[in-house]
């Protein structure tokens, strides 16, 4: 059987919020090492890759590798039934048709279980190589969400340019243009408020606002976001998830036709 118990059940609630607008359905692959999910959006422009390590769970048992196809809208509905402080357990048999979500209140006085039908999904699984990126920007996740939201008012695209001086976000359209520049933090008391840039070479790429705004739904998961860019390669937007794993979004840059 499969059983994964997480005392901080709110993490599951936040993960669903971070993927449900971008993906309609996805396979959750469960094995000894933990739970992974990889899926493309409907337009196949972006890719979500989620990794939750088994040692990050309060209890984890996986007798046989499982692939559970789920409708994420349905899963999100169920996780909305969990309280923010609830302990969440996901349970399934070895060849499951259904998955069960169990929510327990902190004091143990309330327990609910929700059973959801699984789907058979035939999804392409991609190999994402580890890459050295030309630029890696780490910045407060809330700041990135704010910039994406603000600049989306000006056009469909945001240009992200990174140099030694800092990182610049730009957008332009019918009403005018906007630029937001962030310098690398010189003196930071709190690590989570820092802007740091690791650069091999300066880069400048154009990305669709629509997708960046989908990615920032993961903001409640993490204080910081990491943006990694290289020529001829998709942008990687990564949010750490406590000490259990991370969610990564990949987005192909816009190029001149």
């Amino acid at each position: 059987m499969f059983e994964a118990r997480l005392a901080k059940g709110a993490i599951f609630k936040k993960i669903l919020e971070a993927v449900k607008d971008l993906l309609t359905e996805a396979s959750w692959d469960c094995g000894d090492m933990g739970i992974t999910l990889q899926a493309m959006d409907n337009a196949h422009v972006s890719l979500v890759s989620l990794n939750l390590r088994s040692d990050g769970f309060d209890k984890y048992r996986c007798d046989r590798n499982l692939t559970m196809g789920m409708n994420l809208g349905s899963m999100s509905k169920i996780l909305k039934c969990a309280g923010n402080d609830d302990i969440v357990t996901i349970r399934a048999q070895d060849n499951p048709d259904t998955v069960t979500f169990v929510f327990e209140s902190e004091n143990g006085e309330k327990q609910s279980d929700y059973e959801m039908k699984l789907m058979s999904l035939d999804l392409e699984h991609l190999q994402i190589p580890e890459t050295e990126y030309a630029c890696v920007v780490k910045m407060p996740a809330g700041e990135f969400a704010r910039i994406c939201r603000d600049l989306s008012q000006f056009g469909d695209s945001i240009v992200i340019s990174c140099s030694k001086q800092g990182v610049k976000f730009s957008a332009s359209g019918d009403i005018g243009s906007a630029n937001v520049k962030l310098a690398q933090s010189s003196n930071v008391d709190k690590e989570e408020e820092a802007v740091t840039i690791e650069m091999q070479e300066p880069v400048s790429f154009t990305y669709a606002c629509r997708y960046l705004n989908f990615f920032t739904k993961a903001t409640p998961l993490s204080a910081q976001v990491k943006l990694s860019m290289s020529p001829e390669y998709p942008l990687m937007v990564e949010y750490a998830i406590d000490d259990i794993g991370q969610i990564r979004y990949f987005l192909a840059p816009k190029i001149e036709d």
């Binding site: 493309m40 196949h44 422009v45 972006s46 890719l47 392409e124 991609l126 190999q127 994402i128 190589p129 695209s157 154009t206 669709a208 390669y233 998709p234 990949f250 987005l251 192909a252 840059p253 816009k254 190029i255 001149e256 036709d257």
Partner: peptide, 14 residues
């Protein structure tokens, strides 16, 4: 005019 490649094409997919 700008276009976007399929994300799969970067990772060896179709």
């Amino acid at each position: 005019k700008q276009k976007q490649r399929s994300i799969a094409s970067f990772f060896g997919g179709s």
